[in-house]
Amino acid sequence: MAGWEDVRDFTLGNVSRRATRIEFGPNAIRAVQGSNDDRVLEPYAYVGANRSLYLDAELTQLLCRVVPTGDHTWSVQDADTTEIGTITRLPSHRRYLRPNWQITQPGHPEILGRTEWLTGSPARLAAKAGSRLIVSVLDGLTGIGDEGGDQPTKSRTLEWRTPSELVMISSTTITITADWLDRRLPFAYTLLAK
């Protein structure tokens, strides 16, 4: 098993296996491994008290902790209380929009997490709208999601970008695309966003 520094796809939870049989374990940051038919969620960092993460299930080896520093800002610190970076919740100025998020990591540009509908070029947004329209029409024709509402709702997707790069995508799982991102920052974000 590779170390937490190399995790690319992960989620926060206590489910360790999803497909054919559901298995549970301790609440942890879990890397997504395997195929859709036999997906395993391997624990990499275990959730402790007060928004802390540990490398072991016994909660003796601290990986990082999240410490509030303001109304909407948190410092992510390592075991020696050295700051790894900060996470800020940016309240929306519009009544019905959810907040955006910002991550700072020393030595790198700020990372802004915004809903996928607020990022990208006009052509890209038009392509997204077109594909969503096609899916909704097909759903209507096939009856998927008709009365009874047994279809799961789609979680909010955020695209995390610097001015020049897509760094990660978050929805039910987080996918990291930038090698330079300290994994403890998105791990900490999951503790705040849950």
Rank of each mutant, 00 (worst) to 15 (best):
D9H: 13
G149Q: 15
R8L: 10
N36R: 12
Y44N: 03
G25R: 12
L12C: 07
W117V: 03
R95Q: 06
R65I: 01
G13S: 03
H108N: 14
E58H: 13
T88E: 12
E23R: 12
L138E: 11
R8W: 02
Y54R: 01
L90V: 10
Q151P: 00
R30W: 05
Y189A: 13
P91K: 13
T20F: 14
A28T: 12
L192C: 11
R39F: 08
F24S: 12
E23C: 03
R18F: 11
A2G: 09
T86F: 00
N14P: 02
A123M: 09
C64T: 08
L185E: 06
L192D: 08
R18C: 07
P43W: 11
Y54W: 14
P109V: 04
T11G: 13
T142Y: 07
S35T: 14
T177P: 05
P186M: 10
I134Q: 02
A28M: 11
D6F: 02
V7A: 10
T73S: 09
W160E: 07
T162C: 06
H93P: 00
E116L: 07
L41I: 13
L41K: 02
D139N: 15
T82F: 00
A126T: 04
G13P: 02
A123K: 11
A57Y: 02
V7D: 03
H72G: 04
D146R: 15
D150F: 13
E83T: 11
Y44C: 08
W180H: 14
P106K: 08
